[in-house]
Design a protein around this nucleic acid. Structure first.
Length: 454
DNA sequence: CGGTTTTGACCAGCGC
DNA sequence: GCGCTGGTCAAAACCG
């Protein structure tokens, strides 16, 4: 590379020039590093803030739930309540992340204690469930997570006769608890590594698929009810379809946490249905809009399957499907952020709770010259932020969103767009905006997310 | 030897 | 009631 004809002083100059360039590059990297560090710190702060806020919200919601359940039972007893399905939310991941789950689990003696516990304490609480309890419920039910002694909150149990409406409610709850999260991912391995330990307990040939379906159960803790099914896609055998069901009753390794948080967030999104704030400002696609710019996978939600199922499609390259066309399906379909649960939400909500009007995400996307987001995505992100920041009732709406996501047992507001008696579609229109559709009479035939081709 | 996998049997739900 | 299908059980085989 060195040209012998160039005089030595020229070489020195070139060397100095290179040194300057390298120094500049070094400085730039330092600055970038500093910015990244700041972002990380900010994110951690936001996460802590959100965690604290969630705990307080859970406590509030817990109290509201008790009152709500009481009202519903009273209405049914008076014969004017119709068939109400309390929006119990199944946590497909850590059972401890949700106080409602705490109420779901077969530990009536501990229920009062669960209120006010933070996540760690809740985790311990869950882990303390005796094995024999688990086994008894196992024998009494075909599902470990469907305890036979499920009752309404303790303050109701004494004065509510065990009439059939309650049985209906319990049946509905059992159905809701059977919600599943299905993950489609390309993998040559027989099973994706999700950080948990599994034991295979069965294998079957499923109809319409030449590949056998394997059944696994979690062995990280004795009595853990979590199960999963693994099957290769019939049409593309490089795609592995893993379906999770149930709640872990033990602490999870970090590797498993990410999967669990993502799937549980998806499940909550499924089971929470359209969100409505008390003041009517809450838009069903509010959060969808918020997470849209980061979407890197597709979540397909189906309430028509035997069990409500969320399918996270991780087979698509990132951002390639940010704006899928609504193919007139009756499914609840929207782009879903892969790390929505464990990174973006804390970021968004943390910022909000700090009463700020800008997102770290926006700053991040604008700071770097080599931003991962294209101009279109940046514009959408900016639009999203603008829309959010301009909403004077943002905090109110946000609180509604949080409570909805964490499993608020909030009754539906009378429209048909519930998971159980109607179908909702959230899709993007040509402008990149998200639209919401309610299809009250939609048939769900052919929309099973697990069926090949969806 | 203890844990895991394999595999046929069994059971429940559902549609006809 | 019957057949089909999905899901689970449990004994035997396998493995480290």
């Amino acid at each position: 590379m060195v040209d012998a004809d160039i005089p030595s002083n020229s070489e020195d100059k070139r060397g100095q020039l290179e040194a300057v360039v390298l120094q500049g590059e070094l400085e730039r990297l330092k600055v970038e590093n500093h910015q990244l560090r700041n972002m990380l710190e900010e994110r951690n702060r936001n996460y802590s803030t959100l965690q604290m806020h969630l705990v307080s919200l859970m406590q509030e919601r817990k109290v509201e739930d008790c009152n709500e359940d009481k009202k519903q039972v009273e209405m049914k007893q008076n014969g004017n309540g119709g068939f109400l399905v309390p929006r119990q939310f199944m946590d497909l991941g850590l059972a401890t992340n949700n106080s409602n789950v705490a109420a779901d689990e077969p530990r009536s003696q501990d229920q009062s204690k669960a209120v006010g516990n933070n996540n760690e304490e809740g985790s311990k609480d869950e882990a303390l469930v005796p094995d024999h309890d688990m086994k008894e419920s196992d024998k009494g039910n075909e599902r470990d997570d469907s305890p036979p002694n499920r009752v309404l909150p303790a303050n109701n149990s004494n004065n509510v006769p065990n009439f059939s409406p309650q049985t209906n409610v319990e049946q509905a709850e059992a159905t809701m608890r059977k919600a599943r999260v299905s993950v489609r991912a390309r993998s040559e391995a027989a099973m994706i590594n999700d950080g948990c330990q599994w034991r295979k307990y069965g294998q079957k040939m499923a109809k319409g698929n030449p590949c056998p379906r394997a059944y696994y159960r979690c062995t990280m803790a004795h009595g853990c009810p979590v199960r999963k099914q693994v099957q290769r896609c019939a049409e593309d055998r490089s795609i592995l379809i893993t379906t999770y069901e149930g709640n872990h009753i033990h602490a999870l390794p970090p590797a498993a946490m990410e999967m669990v948080q993502t799937t549980s967030a998806a499940a909550r999104m499924l089971l929470s249905g359209p969100m409505t704030s008390p003041d009517g400002l809450m838009n069903p696609n509010f959060l969808t809009r918020a997470i849209l710019p980061y979407s890197s996978s597709i979540a397909t939600i189906s309430a028509s399957a035997p069990f409500p199922t969320v399918t996270l499609d991780l087979t698509e390259p990132p951002n390639s499907n940010q704006f899928p066309n609504n193919k007139n399906t009756n499914q609840f379909q929207f782009p879903f952020a892969q790390n929505f649960a464990n990174s973006l939400l804390p970021q968004i909500f943390g910022q909000t709770l700090l009463n700020q009007t800008t997102f770290s995400g926006l700053q991040m996307s604008q700071d770097g010259e080599n931003s991962q987001l294209g101009n279109q995505s940046q514009q959408q992100l900016a639009d999203t932020v603008t829309a959010i920041a301009s909403d004077p009732n943002f905090t109110t709406a946000l609180a509604a969103a949080i409570t909805s996501i964490i499993g608020a047992a909030q009754p539906n507001n009378g429209n048909n767009s519930t998971i159980n008696n109607g179908n909702s579609t959230i899709a993007n229109n040509n402008n990149g905006n998200v639209t919401s559709n309610n299809n009250a009479n939609g048939s769900n035939k052919g929309n099973n997310p697990n069926s090949p081709g969806n």
